[in-house]
Write a protein that binds this DNA or RNA. Structure first.
Length: 282
DNA sequence: GCCCAGGCCATTT
DNA sequence: AAATGGCATGGG
């Protein structure tokens, strides 16, 4: 499957920390699992070659239709966002399967990207549906039911530590119908957050990640330690006692209709350029 | 050994 | 509303 996609940067897209099942191959391409398929992705300029899954699946997952230039054009025009956009040019948000995204981010709390990938891989090998691809055994991301029926010990052995009991309890709440992920789509943003945060291990940050990367909700603006640092040091330089509430008010009024996108560009930038936070540039 | 990592939660001020 | 400590694990 071949697409012509302008303003598309596969590397930034797959390595900016939004998805955890991709690995970079020696030839510069990427390989990852979407549903029950292994997908191979490579890029040469505007030419994007995606193989291994039906075209519709790939178009949706990679959001091929999105006009990144137009989205980036809505960002506030300030020095920090200009640098973030210059650094991550072509990065786009994926549309992941909501449960997989939610469960992965439950496992992400206070862990680094590489570690999260390892835990997610452990989880898939332990509880995911096996399938064969290219002569190799691969594993789908485990279903809600598979996780709900697992034992605490099985999750524990995936090296997710204290997150194990949260993931197990969350899967059981969803499996029993007490929290219904299918209802999230129709909810407005505040209700969606309220519903997701009923799940143990899901606070505002994890809920925002799931809503942004799984449900495509642009109002979602995950505030992790890096984004909090970025907001404070870049947009409130030198000010003491900036409250959480002020940060939320600021980002909701400042970043525009694609705030979630802006957040990801900023995150990717500061995460890979820590010096950008050392002394606030003007 | 220490500190921190794409947090959350209960408890305390 | 904000601070604090606990919760597991691994890397610098």
């Amino acid at each position: 499957m071949e697409f012509t996609a302008r303003n598309f940067h596969l590397g930034h897209t797959l390595e900016c920390g939004q998805a955890f099942r991709w690995r970079r191959l020696a030839d510069g391409g990427y390989e990852g699992v979407i549903g029950r398929t292994v997908v191979h992705a490579t890029q040469l300029g505007d030419k994007l070659v995606l193989a291994g899954a039906p075209a519709g699946t790939l178009e949706r997952y990679f959001q091929v239709h999105e006009d990144i230039a137009a989205i980036v054009g809505t960002f506030p025009d300030d020095p920090h966002m200009r640098r973030a956009v210059a650094f991550g040019r072509g990065m786009r948000l994926l549309r992941q399967e909501p449960w997989e995204c939610l469960a992965s981010f439950i496992c992400s709390a206070a862990k680094q990207f590489v570690q999260i990938c390892q835990v997610v891989d452990n989880l898939c090998r332990a509880l995911g549906e096996p399938f064969e691809a290219g002569g190799r055994n691969e594993f789908a991301f485990p279903s809600v039911e598979a996780v709900a029926r697992a034992t605490h010990g099985q999750l524990w052995s995936c090296k997710m530590g204290f997150r194990a009991k949260n993931l197990l309890a969350a899967a059981r709440l969803i499996d029993s119908g007490k929290v219904r992920l299918e209802t999230i789509t129709a909810m407005d943003y505040p209700h969606a957050v309220e519903e997701l945060t009923k799940l143990p291990g899901v606070g505002p940050k994890v809920a925002d990640c799931a809503l942004l990367f799984g449900w495509g909700r642009q109002e979602a603006f995950p505030i992790d330690v890096w984004i909090e640092r970025a907001l404070r040091r870049l947009y409130f330089p030198g000010k003491r006692r900036v409250t959480r509430r002020q940060l939320v008010e600021f980002h909701r009024s400042y970043f525009g209709p694609y705030a979630g996108y802006a957040q990801q560009y900023l995150f990717h930038y500061v995460r890979n350029n820590p010096q950008s936070l050392a002394a606030a540039p003007r």
